[in-house]
């Protein structure tokens, strides 16, 4: 393992986030906090408890998950897309570094950023909403696994995209709608039976539900189903990354 190279890539990616701290950190924290203010405090005060917790507290895990998914995908996709776009990827491809190490550097940095953001948003939420976390270890595990998995998916998107439009396509048109429809703002038990069944085909439901379980101990689907889905996503993302590097897809002619 060429740790020096992984470290260099990881630090360069983290430094890029620090250079753009307003966009990388402040912006997602502010926009997620606005959700807490609008849906939690303003509208939430008129909504009854959901699954035994206040509405404001109920939406916290879903909102953190929403931010975690979108930030993981966009951080990782931009991290690899920009060197491809500018041409500076030549340096990574010609370095004595294996594909696993390249992924560790880029995805590791993106997942670190997303996890840190998740923790910052969690801290910010606790300023607006009184809440407790029943299973902090599982909460952290969920956060890290989700950040890793979706950073890897973002990495794949960053390689697949051949323009800025495609780069935004998946986060805006797939991730965000699936998250909104995945129980971020409601419990799926509130839906009619038909839509409950349909919703179970949305993988994000399992992520939000499992994450919410780690906070309040109750969930729409079992925690094991949620963990299985996270691992399934992780395996799919790993397989895609392995395929990309084995074939040189969009990296090497």
């Amino acid at each position: 393992m060429n740790l020096q190279s992984v470290k260099a890539l990881y630090h360069a990616e983290m430094a890029r986030s620090l250079r753009t701290i307003l966009q990388s950190v402040v912006s997602p924290v502010v926009s997620t906090s606005l959700y807490f203010v609008v849906f939690g405090s303003a509208i939430g005060s008129r909504i009854n408890e959901v699954d035994g917790v206040s509405y404001a507290a109920f939406i916290v895990p879903g909102l953190i998950m929403l931010m975690l998914l979108t930030q993981s995908v966009s951080n990782a996709s931009f991290g690899i897309f920009f060197p491809r776009f500018s041409g500076s990827i030549y340096e990574v491809l010609s370095a004595p570094i294996s594909y696993v190490e390249v992924v560790l550097g880029y995805v590791g940095a993106a997942a670190t950023k997303s996890t840190l953001l998740g923790l910052i948003v969690l801290g910010t939420a606790s300023l607006f909403v009184p809440m407790h976390i029943e299973h902090p270890f599982i909460m952290l595990l969920f956060m890290v696994l989700t950040a890793l998995t979706f950073s890897m998916l973002g990495f794949v998107i960053g390689i697949w995209a051949d323009g800025f439009e495609k780069l935004q396509l998946v986060p805006l048109l797939i991730i965000t709608p699936l998250t909104f429809l995945g129980g971020t703002f409601y419990s799926i038990s509130m839906l009619p039976p038909f839509w409950q069944a349909v919703t179970l085909f949305n993988p994000v439901v399992y992520l939000v539900s499992g994450f919410r379980w780690s906070f309040y101990g109750n969930a729409d689907v079992s925690i094991w189903a949620s963990l299985s889905v996270v691992f399934l996503f992780l395996c799919i993302s790993l397989a895609l990354v392995a395929m990309i590097f084995r074939t040189g897809y969009r990296l090497k002619p």
């Binding site: 060429n2 260099a8 360069a12 500018s86 041409g87 500076s88 340096e91 370095a95 004595p96």
Partner: peptide
């Protein structure tokens, strides 16, 4: 081709690290 917003020292040091 280069990372436009990096500083000269940082980008050259990065290359050294990248090559292990």
């Amino acid at each position: 081709t280069s990372e436009a917003f990096s500083k000269v020292w940082d980008t050259v040091s990065f290359s050294r690290g990248l090559f292990g």
